[in-house]
Structure formats: structure tokens, C-alpha cells
Design a protein around this nucleic acid. Structure first.
Lengths: 244, 244
DNA sequence: GCCGACTCTAGTGTCTGACAATGCTGTTAG
DNA sequence: CTAACAGCATTGTCAGACACTAGAGTCGGC
């Protein structure tokens, strides 16, 4: 009965149309192609992808459930504009979930291959830093690292809770444009520390390091958020408004 | 911007049809009117409530998202049969979330009125124990207590995560038929302890007591689950297979 | 000149009805 | 007794339609 349990719930069902629309819209929102505050009507989505409105509706509902869109009854969905409180809240929750996940993972005393791969990507990106490795893909690799860790941990429900948060977290990172802000060397060292703790089965340390890592990320994000508030949207042109 | 934030997301929108169907089905499942393992087709739901199939479909999708039903593409939804691992996993996650929530709540140093009310209900039920106060309503009051605490805490996202778990938790309680198993006096004392810690703003103690309380509940549930495994489903006929 | 009620449009909630594609089941042939 | 096959049940998706709600702009009254 538990043999047919699959952690992946959607990877294989690429065949379903609403899911494809959902993924495309999700990507679009996370990439800021839909600016914060923009309205997203069902009809617009339907026309854009050439699907029926119910199909678009289903996709939008999933996005709303995930927090990537907000709407109330009879009102048009909008891309949320996350404020400072949202960032704090998001990262507080993420810290709770991910700390718990890493403790569980450390109990198995083996670091997942996916996470190690993601870490490798970040490391090599840091090496060829000159070329820069577009900021977005770096942020993605970072997210992939964390996701891999959480999904390797034994509780499927915990992974689900984490996934629910990570959508908004990604959106949040995108909106603050903090990709470049990553202090790469620090991040790499912290990731490695977590991997080591996991490999050694030190749940306490893994949990602690994870929380510290997330809180650090939050603070960087907040710092950038506050700086951006002063420097009006003009700063959005130059990617390097703040140097590391 | 945060003025229009509403904790209640569905209480007022009773007007939407899929939501009504969703609630009715949810109730039906939690009350074991749909036995574990039973199939729930879209058409059956549509006919049962006299709505169109897409409406029923939307309701089922919400239930699936919440974990109260399971299905994969092109397969009929089924009421999940939670096993021992599910109980352990569910309560582990619940402990993580609720401990975090209670810590946050304690920071405000004020116990929410709803929780106090729920506690009062349980206390008065314990007083008139003879009549018994049907087991289900007692379990509901207990859930209401916890829900009230979590929803009073400032993070809306944490409340969402908690709500996501509580559906399955309720299902789980229902399936194990552990209502009567509640050691009422202990539960009341533990609840009161949590309320006191919150009122005193002692986050550490509130979190700790909450975790202990949940772990205790889990152990009671597991004990009953294991006992039930030996005593075959015959016990399901009589509601009082095991006396308090 | 300002405020309130009204209309009008856009957008969502919901339904009917239908067809295609897939999974499951019962049956039959080897 | 096993395996392939056919039929049925169920889901995925669509089109088109109507009712209802919310918001914006306009008009009349004060």
C-alpha cells in the first residue's frame, strides 16, 4: 500500500493542460514578467495560452493556493506585492520548516546527491565569477539546494509544507532583486557546513546551521529591501546598485 | 495594505457552490461516512449534491490538495487509509508547526478568547461526564482549541500550514476512533498550562508544553491504533468497544 | 460646487453538454 | 491458469452560455 507512494506528484503528469498553464504562469510570475500588482484575468490567461477559460481558471486557482497570486471572490487576481512584513514572516516560517527538515535528514546521516550537485553548481559559478552566471540561475541553484535537502528527508508532508512556502520565497527573492546580493563565498561555506552536519548525522548542528543560514539570507534580503525603498525604482536598471 | 488582511478566508464566502460541496464532503469524510478506502467519483459527488461535474471536480481537487482524498491522474479519488507511519508523521509535523505557533503567540502574552471558550467547553463536558457529550464533539472542541491558538498567532502563513495539517489530523483521529480515549482531565490540565504560559508570555514554556501535549496525544492515538489492529473491525459496530 | 445614487461594463461563478483519452474489469482463448 | 482483448467507467478538456457581483463613470440633487 505504501509501495506506490510517490513523492513526485506532478513531474510525470506533464500531460495535463491546466498543469502546463500553471507552470508557465508560475514561471512568468517568478521571472517578474508579471510585475507586482498586475492583474491577471482568467480570460487573459486563456487567450494567452489558447486554452478554455475553465482551464485557465484551474491554473490560477493553483497559483492562488500557492500564494503566487491573490484574489478574493469576484475580484481579479493580482500578483502580490510583498512587503517587509511578508519577508519576515516568510523567512520565519521557512526557518521553522527547514530546521525541522534538516534535523530529520541528519538523522539518516547521508547527504542527498541532488543537494551535493546543486552545491557544486554554485561553487563552479563562484569560480567563474567574472562572467557572472546570470543572477537568476544562481538564485535557482540556491533554491534547488534547499529543496533537495528537504525532499530527501523522510516526511512527505514536511516537504509539502516547504514547497508551499518556497513559491512565495522565490517570488520574494525575485521582487527584491537580491540575486546579486548573495555573498557567494559565505553561502557556499554555510551550505557545506550543513551538508557536513547532515553527513555526520548531527541533527542538532544541522538544524542550527540551517536556521542561521536562513536568517542570514533573510537579513540580506531585508537590507536590500530597505535600501531599495530609499533608492526609487531607478536602481532597477543597474544590477550592481550595492556591491558585495 | 495589511488592513484588509483577513484571517478568515472562507467563512463568509459561503455563497460559492464548489466551496459548499467541498465543506459537505469534508464533513462527510471526517465523520467516516465515507469509509477509508472508499472511492469518490466526480459524478457521484455531482449527483449527490445536484451540481454539475466541474463543480464537484473543483471540490474534490480541494480535498485532494488538503490530503483528505488521494488520487492520481485518471484514477478515482479514494479516502486514504492512514497507517501507523502516517500518524507518526502527521503528529511530528503538527508538533513542529504548533510549537512554533505557540511560541509566537506567547510573545504577545495574551490568550485568545476563542481558545479560552473552547477550553471551557471541554471543561464543562468533563463535568457532565456521565451523559458523555458525544465523543465526536469533544474531539471537535479539542481541535477548535488548538486551531484558535494557532490562528491567534500573528503569522498568517503559519496558520495556513497548520490548517493544511489539521485536516488529515482530524481524519486520522476519526479513523482511529480515539475520541473516547482522550484522558479528559489530563488534556484539560495540559491545555490550561499552555494557556497560562501564553498569558505569561513565556514562549519557551508554551512551546515546550505544546510539543509535549501533542506527543502525548500522538502516543494515545498510536496505542489505540495498535490495539485496534489486534481487535479486528468487528469493534467498529459498537461505539463503546473499549471502555474508558 | 460637492456628494450621493444610478447605470453600465468587465470579470467571475456556475451550468449544460459533449468528446477524447485513459484505466480497470470481466471475459475468452491458449 | 495465464494472458490478451474488448467494453465500460471515469477523468481531462473544451465550447458556449447565463447570472451575479464589483467598480467606474455619469448624472442629478442639495
Amino acid at each position: 500500500m505504501s509501495v506506490e507512494r510517490r513523492a513526485v506528484d506532478e513531474s510525470l503528469s506533464v500531460t495535463t493542460l491546466p498543469h502546463a498553464v500553471y507552470e508557465a504562469m508560475r514561471e512568468s510570475i517568478l521571472a517578474q514578467r508579471e510585475p507586482p500588482g498586475a492583474t491577471v484575468t482568467e480570460k487573459a490567461v486563456a487567450d494567452r495560452f489558447g486554452v478554455a477559460r475553465p482551464t485557465a481558471k484551474a491554473a490560477l486557482e493553483r497559483l492562488v493556493a500557492e500564494g503566487l497570486l491573490r484574489r478574493s471572490t469576484h475580484k481579479t487576481a493580482r500578483v502580490p506585492q510583498l512587503d517587509r512584513d511578508d519577508i519576515v514572516d516568510l523567512y520565519a516560517n521557512r526557518a521553522v520548516i527547514e530546521e525541522a527538515a534538516l534535523r530529520l535528514l541528519a538523522a539518516s546521516a547521508s547527504a542527498p546527491a541532488d543537494a551535493i550537485d546543486a552545491q557544486r553548481v554554485i561553487v563552479s559559478a563562484a569560480a567563474s565569477d567574472a562572467e557572472g552566471a546570470d543572477t537568476g540561475s544562481l538564485a535557482r541553484a540556491d533554491i534547488a539546494f534547499h529543496r533537495a535537502l528537504v525532499e530527501a528527508q523522510p516526511s512527505p508532508r514536511l516537504a509539502r509544507l516547504h514547497a508551499l512556502l518556497m513559491g512565495e520565497i522565490e517570488l520574494c527573492i525575485g521582487q527584491v532583486l537580491a540575486h546579486r546580493l548573495l555573498a557567494l563565498d559565505d553561502v557556499i561555506a554555510q551550505h557545506q557546513g550543513i551538508l557536513d552536519a547532515v553527513a555526520q548525522g548531527d541533527a542538532e548542528r544541522a538544524g542550527h546551521l540551517t536556521r542561521a543560514h536562513i536568517e542570514g539570507a533573510r537579513d540580506r534580503l531585508l537590507g536590500y529591501f530597505d535600501a531599495q525603498r530609499d533608492a526609487p525604482p531607478a536602481a532597477r536598471g543597474g544590477e550592481r546598485g550595492v556591491d558585495g
